[in-house]
């Protein structure tokens, strides 16, 4: 059986900026893939490219993009619209603004079901209420009649999650779903997502820059830098033996209780993610990398490190 989502060599450019430059990812059914990296490294653009929700002016190319074996590249706009919200759903980073202020929660939730399954309104309302209860919202009947501005950010994100689940999707793409929320709410939403993923057997692509989240929910991890996946590994493997200097740098920035000594400075990676063109050659991390040498300016081979672990660096070590 084919993988749930299989992307090969995806590239997205905005004018002269290469936001994504040859990214390959695979999500299996019932599996959580975390995509990590600093802001501006192309995580969100990758997600939007999968959903075909890129802003105007974006140019998307790929060798192949398959969802449940179906070719997404050849799909028409209407064909893609039939998949979105139905078999593949997405939740966003901005819960405060992602719901339409002019319509009630109920009307926004039920319209997905009516659109894709033709479900009668009454049945759709029941399902919406069930899902609201499921994502931990009390008094779902009341919430259905409320407008987004009457709900807190955490509640709105729960509504977004429930809305994404209306059509029982196979794949849920979550783009930094907790970044805009309070720390206590962040933990609740994450726990909820992890639980839903297990219970419903969802394939999930979770985009985050928070390695604490990765450690808790991911089955496998893809580390992105400047539009490329620089390291792929199962979660435990990645945390135990990161191979790419960028991954190593990221992990050094996370304080781990017990491992880190008092007064020892936390790691940091100097500089920021560079903006590179679509035809940039060599390793984009070389300017921030302590192992860089002139060979880094040329094509970099992808090394296999056993199992499903690979990384993109000239150093095989």
């Amino acid at each position: 059986m084919s993988a749930l989502l299989e992307i090969e060599d995806l590239a997205v450019s905005f004018g002269r900026t290469g936001a994504v430059r040859g990214t390959s990812l695979t999500v299996e059914r019932g599996e959580t893939l975390c995509v990590v990296g600093e802001s501006g490294c192309g995580k969100s653009v990758t997600a939007l490219a999968v959903m075909n929700l890129l802003a105007r002016g974006a140019r998307r190319t790929a060798r192949s993009m398959r969802f449940q074996g179906e070719d997404l590249l050849g799909l028409s706009d209407t064909g893609m619209a039939r998949l979105r919200g139905n078999d593949m759903a997405m939740i966003f980073q901005e819960p405060m603004t992602s719901l339409n202020p002019a319509y009630t929660v109920g009307s926004q939730m039920t319209e997905v079901l009516r659109r894709h399954k033709g479900t009668p309104q009454r049945v759709a309302v029941d399902r919406a209420a069930d899902l609201l209860a499921r994502v931990g919202i009390t008094a779902p009947g009341l919430r259905l009649g409320q407008f987004p501005h009457q709900l807190s950010g955490g509640l709105r994100q729960r509504v977004m999650i429930a809305m994404a689940l209306m059509c029982e999707p196979k794949l849920l793409i979550a783009d930094e779903p907790t970044t805009a929320l309070d720390v206590t709410v962040q933990a609740q939403i994450l726990r909820l997502l992890a639980q839903l993923q297990r219970d419903l057997g969802l394939g999930m692509m979770l985009i985050t820059h928070d390695l604490g989240i990765v450690a808790r929910v991911a089955h496998k991890v893809a580390v992105m830098y400047a539009g490329k996946v620089v390291e792929n590994a199962a979660t435990a493997e990645l945390f135990a033996s990161p191979r790419h200097p960028y991954t190593q740098g990221l992990l050094r920035c996370v304080p781990v209780p017990g491992k880190i000594k008092r007064d020892e400075p936390l790691g940091s990676i100097p500089g920021t993610v560079p903006r590179v063109g679509p035809d940039f050659e060599g390793c984009a991390f070389r300017e921030r990398c302590s192992f860089a040498d002139p060979t880094c300016e040329h094509e970099i081979p992808r090394h296999q490190a056993g199992g499903a672990h690979d990384f993109l660096c000239r150093l095989p070590a």
Binding site: L53, A81, R82, G85, N86, S98, L99, P101, V112, R115
Partner: peptide, 13 residues
């Protein structure tokens, strides 16, 4: 953002 959501929901144009 809410139009992006509406598109992500697969609604008709």
């Amino acid at each position: 953002d809410y139009i992006r959501t509406a598109r992500a929901k697969g609604l008709s144009r």
